[in-house]
Amino acid sequence: MNGNKLDALTTDALKEFGNIGAGHAATALSILLDGRVTMSVTEARLCPCADIVETVGSDRLVAAVFIRLLGAIPGNMFVLMTLPSADRLLAHMLREARREDDYTELELSAIAEVGNILSGAYVAAISDLCGLNLNQSVPAVAIDMAAAVLDIGLMMSGNENNEAIFISSTLVHEGNHIDTQFFMLPDYDGTDTLLDVLRRKAYYGG
């Protein structure tokens, strides 16, 4: 792969992947949040594994959901939210403002569920676009420094030149903006495999 310089076809393929995923996610989240949800993709690109932590901000506090991608392209997925975004989301889902300093079990599982829906939407987008058989593990959640939560994903993705698919999106529900960052880190050279099918799909149409 040629680093950060992406050809137009790959850029288009990633954008299409992001948009289809966001569409799936908006539908699922509007049921969960009981109201109209719109989602827009603000960024869709490849991110070298070595730059992921800098992209998020290494000691910034984040709500992180970790999900293992299983099937044709095994890998790791992370859905990250800033704490203000996570708190706005919780206020809507649980219908009350957060009171305690630490997050309760209920709040953590609500965050896990949203992460699960978002990653599930992107996984479904790949399945739709590429006809690949993919599944995901149950979500695990942590609220901590970005670098600390991301390290297990990085250590499993093999060599340093590997790249992650990075989709940044904003979800709008009742005037509230919730920013999410999604990383998909296929094991070994899975990113190449995935991009090949996405590009072919973008080129020949779907």
């Binding site: 970790f66 293992r68 149950v138 695990a140 600390a148 939560v149 297990i152």
Partner: peptide
């Protein structure tokens, strides 16, 4: 040497 995600079912949990 922390385990950031509790309840993980993969081998990574013991890294």
């Amino acid at each position: 040497g922390s385990q950031m995600f509790r309840g993980l079912q993969t081998e990574a949990l013991r890294i």
